[in-house]
């Protein structure tokens, strides 16, 4: 059953080291991703520290039901992704494919929910520019950051869904074996996108509720 010939790549002597190398490479990439998102979070922190009341007023108009549903969807997708990785490591091909399918489906459900939320936001004119309904003017800063931060996060999630579907297809066709190192990188990236949402959720949806 152990098909090492297809899973093991040069120059690794064993799969454990190969997986570790893929994980390490992904963590290097994620360190740069952390800084990319940190710049946005830092802007948010600066503007909020100078416009606390405006941010409170603006954040009260976010759709907390959609935000909370998406929190549950993403956390659950991290669960299925972890199961997929563990199943792949011990060569449970069917469980790997099923868990990856569930992960991609939960990701799509997140995007659909986000789409409904964006639709509701646009209907309320919550886009900075002419006709923006909130006062004072600094509320537009919050909503500008809302669109950029959730938009960039959604792009990352879309990329993640694409990768998960691509990997599923490769596993399905048997192009690459499930127990190789591929899942290691995919899983870490997916969890990172979830982590970004863990910080977006309180800053965007929970601010201004009390």
């Amino acid at each position: 059953m152990t098909d090492l010939s297809g899973a093991l790549q040069e120059p690794w002597p064993d799969l454990r080291l190969q997986r570790e190398a893929v994980g390490l490479g992904m963590w290097f990439f994620l360190a740069s991703e952390v800084l990319f998102f940190a710049a946005l979070f830092c802007s948010y922190a600066i503007y909020r520290s100078f416009n606390a009341e405006a941010f409170r007023i603006a954040a009260a108009h976010t759709k907390i039901v959609y935000g909370s549903i998406n929190m549950v969807l993403l956390l659950t997708s991290s669960l299925t992704m972890t199961v997929a990785l563990r199943a792949a490591t011990i060569q449970l091909r069917r469980l790997t494919l099923l868990s990856l399918g569930a992960t991609a489906a939960l990701g799509v459900a997140f995007l659909v929910t986000k789409g409904l939320e964006y639709y509701a936001d646009i209907n309320e004119n919550l886009v900075p520019g002419p006709g923006f309904p909130l006062k004072p003017a600094a509320t537009a800063i919050f909503w500008g950051l809302y669109w950029i931060m959730t938009g960039v996060h959604a792009l990352h999630l879309t990329a993640g869904i694409g990768v998960v579907i691509a990997v599923m297809t490769l596993f399905w066709r048997g192009t690459i074996p499930v127990q190789g190192s591929t899942m290691e990188g995919v899983a870490i990236y997916w969890h990172f996108v979830d982590t970004v949402w863990i910080f977006l959720y309180p800053l965007i949806y929970l601010a201004g509720r009390s």
């Binding site: 570790e20 994980g23 390490l24 963590w27 290097f28 994620l30 360190a31 740069s32 991703e33 952390v34 800084l35 940190a38 710049a39 830092c42």
Partner: peptide, 15 residues
């Protein structure tokens, strides 16, 4: 791996 994973956090604190 743990060191690399914490570098992002480290530079973010500086930022």
């Amino acid at each position: 791996v743990r060191i690399v994973a914490s570098t992002g956090l480290f530079w973010m604190i500086f930022m």
